[in-house]
Amino acid sequence: MKAPVHRRTKVAAIGAALLITAGATGSAVASGDPGSRGGGQREAAALTGSAKLYRSLGDDITFTFDAHLAAKNTDDPLKATGTFSWSHYLNGKGAWAKARVDCLVTGGKVAVVSGVITDTDLEGAKGTRVGITVHDVGRGDRLGYSWAAQGSPVETKDLPRCVGSAPFEKVAGGSGDFRVVPWNPKL
């Protein structure tokens, strides 16, 4: 026995509505809030990703960030957590370093992060604070670092937290995936 037309129409409409709802929910969950980590609450600020810098001589320079400011610490960028690292090699010579984040401030697509070097093969750099600035513009990201004028992180004695230089270096084409979550402090 065939179901009446109006009953089949209702069943089809309810099925379609359920599919649309499930699809919308799945899309929302998949896209997420750009600043959420796991639980769905937006973190106060973040800088993540990695990239190689462009140098005409062929230097191999890579920076990687995993810096976060939790929502509960919105008013205190000195409570940022995470790490960042970099390496710089040319013709087999160079160094690498890893730092523990001690400050993160972001605004729009610009982030300034600082940290103390915890591990490195650069003599005299361990325990030194460094700062890095990233401009996340998608294609054409830029980066700057506190030791730009001195030539080495070893030379940046007594650097205050959250100090970096203008992002003057260019990211090599196709290598960058920096992501900045803008800070919105309660003012």
Rank of each mutant, 00 (worst) to 15 (best):
A17W: 02
Y54A: 15
G138E: 02
N73L: 04
A45Y: 14
A125Q: 01
S36Y: 09
R8I: 00
Y89G: 02
E123W: 08
K52G: 06
C103V: 10
K2R: 11
V5M: 06
A67F: 14
P34V: 11
K109V: 07
A30F: 12
D75C: 01
S56H: 11
V5R: 10
D75K: 08
K126E: 13
G176N: 00
G107I: 03
A149D: 03
L53C: 09
D76N: 15
P4D: 14
S152G: 13
P4M: 05
V154N: 03
Y145Q: 12
R37F: 14
I61N: 04
T156D: 00
G23S: 02
T9D: 03
I61M: 06
H88R: 12
G151N: 12
V154F: 02
A30T: 14
A80E: 02
L53S: 06
F168R: 08
A28N: 02
P182R: 15
T48H: 11
M1F: 06
F84L: 07
V130C: 13
P182C: 11
V137L: 06
A24H: 09
V134N: 11
I14R: 04
A13H: 14
N91L: 02
G26E: 00
G58Y: 14
S146I: 10
Y54Q: 15
P182F: 03
S50T: 15
V163P: 03
P77H: 02
V5L: 15
K10C: 11
Y54D: 09
V134A: 12
A111R: 03
K72C: 00
G131D: 01
T81A: 14
A13V: 11
R42G: 03
T9H: 10
D121W: 07
A149G: 00
P34E: 02
D66Y: 01
S31M: 04
L122R: 07
E43Q: 06
V29R: 14
V29F: 15
R139A: 13
V112P: 09
R129I: 01
T64S: 10
E155C: 01
L159S: 07
A172Q: 15
V134M: 07
S152P: 14
K126A: 15
L47K: 06
W183G: 06
A30D: 04
D59V: 05
S87F: 13
T106H: 01
V29E: 13
T64E: 07
T74D: 10
L19T: 05
K157D: 10
L78E: 04
T64H: 05
G39Q: 12
D66F: 10
G173C: 00
K2L: 07
L90S: 06
G35A: 15
A70L: 13
K126D: 05
A22K: 08
W183A: 12
D59I: 11
L104P: 12
L53D: 04
K72F: 00
